[in-house]
Amino acid sequence: MPKWAMVFDLDKCTGCGACMAACKMENNVAIVDPEEAQAGRALFWMDMINAHEGEYPTVAIKRMPKPCFHCDNPPCTKVCPVRATYLNEDGLVAQIYHRCIGCRYCMAACPFTAKVFNWWDPRWLEGATTCFNPDVSLRMAGVVEKCSFCAHRLHHVNEVARVDDRALQDGEFMPACAENCPADAIYFGDLENKDSQVYKLSRSYRVSRVMEDLGVEPKVYYLARRTA
């Protein structure tokens, strides 16, 4: 079974935000009211962490794109009372909106705050929903949502590969963020495939994962020069 994982090369990433926009457009993520957004309820599956390090004038701004980490030992799935979120056999942490009852336990359990909650119904113009990406359903008020690694694209490429009767190739399944990164800083692929770029990079000396000591085994890796 494949094990999908993502690698960010922070030495390449400029923090331009293209991944955030690509994700929003691909996944029909709602845009909330300005006041709501300011209150911290803006919905970003792919978020950008800004951290200032050091003091003037030797200051560094670190920007870090943050999707869902699709942990191998996910804490969020264990608290879901209705199994709306679970780890599937492809290693994706699924979020089934129509099962979700909006208790937000999973949000509380996620150490990376990767999940967001629909406090309100996104109100689009009547009928306009047909001009969204038809591969992703629209969510409603009261459900939790998060980065899916663009799982809907996996359906598509899997189907194409099986019609052609061949195995999936490295790079064929590509989420929207990785597809559009202007710095080629996002790699995506199968960790089980020893020839994949992601596998090789996940063994780089530059690699690290966020809060590794928690033991949740995130499948999102960050590459960065060791500064210390």
Binding site: E36, P134, A141
Partner: peptide, 26 residues
């Protein structure tokens, strides 16, 4: 009490396109 609080009218799609999108073959 649920009431919408999102943005109205983000899109303005002409009826002809909507028709196409709704009944098209995908």
């Amino acid at each position: 009490v649920l009431h919408g609080c999102g943005l109205d009218d983000v899109f303005d799609v002409p009826a002809s396109l909507l028709e196409k999108a709704k009944n098209g073959s995908g």
